[in-house]
């Protein structure tokens, strides 16, 4: 029992050390712009454009549900235009970034872990090194930069979609006029609502892609190993995303 605990502690310390080493190597790859510059654009298209449908789909239904739940909760005691307030605030501060983040952890994080994991077990990563490329600047940095820059764009569009469908649902199903919905939307709005959600989503993008790359590049053992890495990347990303979500609320919203 004690031996197992000791071994796990050592493994955990090794994992943290390994991650620190990985981030250090990543920082050293930054001057290699000639390599990662062009590849970042390719990854931005993959992360951004390809992920947009799933993020917008989730946001569209979330906006509708938020409007209906708000109306159900208020039950006449709170003016109905507060539906606009609740839809706007919740989409911007929490559900827009977190739901899109969780969906993209599955889509982007898993695909990166699987792709890099396959490259690792088929020696393509070794081949890159023998061709005098640094895997950090060729594989990791473009993905992390693409995730960090494109997640806020995706989340911004998801928030707008959620608010739009919330407005449509209020107008069609709750008989709330556009003026009333907008009144509620503007009521407690602060610019911080916008940048908080977008900043948070940038950190989610960085975390999800970094985890996908770290897990993918540490893959061992063929197809089974790739499968394990893919699952691990999704689980780690989702857990870290929720921890980060609580962390930013604690640091920036108090």
């Amino acid at each position: 029992m004690i031996e197992r605990l000791g071994r796990r502690t050592v493994d955990a310390i090794k994992a943290v050390g390994g991650f620190g080493h990985f981030v250090g190597d990543l920082a050293r790859a930054v001057p290699d712009v000639a390599v990662w510059g062009r590849l970042t654009l390719v990854q931005m298209r993959r992360v951004g454009v390809d992920s947009l449908p799933v993020a917008l789909f989730i946001a569209a239904f979330t906006g509708v549900v938020l409007a209906l739940q708000a109306s159900y909760t208020f039950t006449g005691t709170v003016p109905l235009y507060f539906v606009g307030t609740l839809v706007g605030k919740t989409m911007m501060l929490e559900l827009g970034p977190v739901l899109a983040g969780l969906a993209l952890a599955g889509r982007v994080g898993a695909s990166m872990a699987a792709e890099l994991g396959t490259m690792k077990v088929t020696e393509q990563v070794d081949a890159l090194e023998t061709l005098a490329y640094d895997p950090q600047s060729f594989l990791v940095l473009p993905r992390v930069l693409a995730g960090t820059t494109m997640f806020p764009v995706i989340v911004a569009l998801a928030i707008l979609t959620g608010i739009f469908t919330g407005w449509i649902a209020s107008f069609v199903l709750l008989d709330l006029s556009t003026q009333e919905f907008l009144k509620g939307l503007k009521l407690f709005y602060r610019f911080k609502d916008t940048w908080f959600g977008l900043f948070k989503s940038a950190t989610f993008g960085c975390t999800i892609t970094l985890v996908g790359c770290v897990v993918g590049l540490s893959t061992r053992g063929g197809a089974e190993g790739v499968g394990r890495s893919t699952t691990r990347a999704v689980v780690y990303s989702a857990v870290l995303l929720l921890v980060l979500d609580a962390f930013w609320a604690l640091v920036l919203l108090r």
């Binding site: 070794d126 081949a127 890159l128 005098a132």
Partner: peptide, 23 residues
């Protein structure tokens, strides 16, 4: 160091067991 290793690798061609082509 990293730069010297990169320079060395430029002088060496490596043929992998399963070719390791970028698919």
């Amino acid at each position: 160091d990293r730069a010297a290793l990169t320079a060395l690798r430029r002088e060496i061609g490596f043929v992998f067991q399963f070719a390791a082509l970028f698919d």
